[in-house]
């Protein structure tokens, strides 16, 4: 029951409801298929790409997924 429970996250500023047990890798893949050029932070901490698969998100986590855009 707990594994299937829905958790509420904030992903790039938007409220999302996702199944419990969802990983950072799954959330990123949902936004971008880009194999590189993307970085993610959970609750203001950078999570290296190598750890995305193993990073299970928790209720109320704030996820930021960034890439390079025109600027400067």
């Amino acid at each position: 029951m707990t594994a299937a429970a829905t958790i509420r996250l904030t992903v790039n500023g938007e409220a999302r409801s996702l199944p419990g047990g969802v990983t950072l890798a799954e959330v990123v893949t949902g936004l971008s298929a880009a194999p590189s050029g993307v970085a993610a932070a959970v609750n203001e901490a950078v999570v290296p790409r190598s750890q995305w698969d193993a990073t299970v998100l928790a209720d109320a986590d704030r996820v930021e997924i960034l890439t390079a855009v025109q600027g400067g």
Binding site: S32, E64, L66
Partner: peptide, 13 residues
């Protein structure tokens, strides 16, 4: 370049 939230609809990079 600047770092911003990823935009799934963006074309080209």
């Amino acid at each position: 370049v600047a770092m911003r939230r990823i935009n799934p609809a963006a074309r080209g990079s």
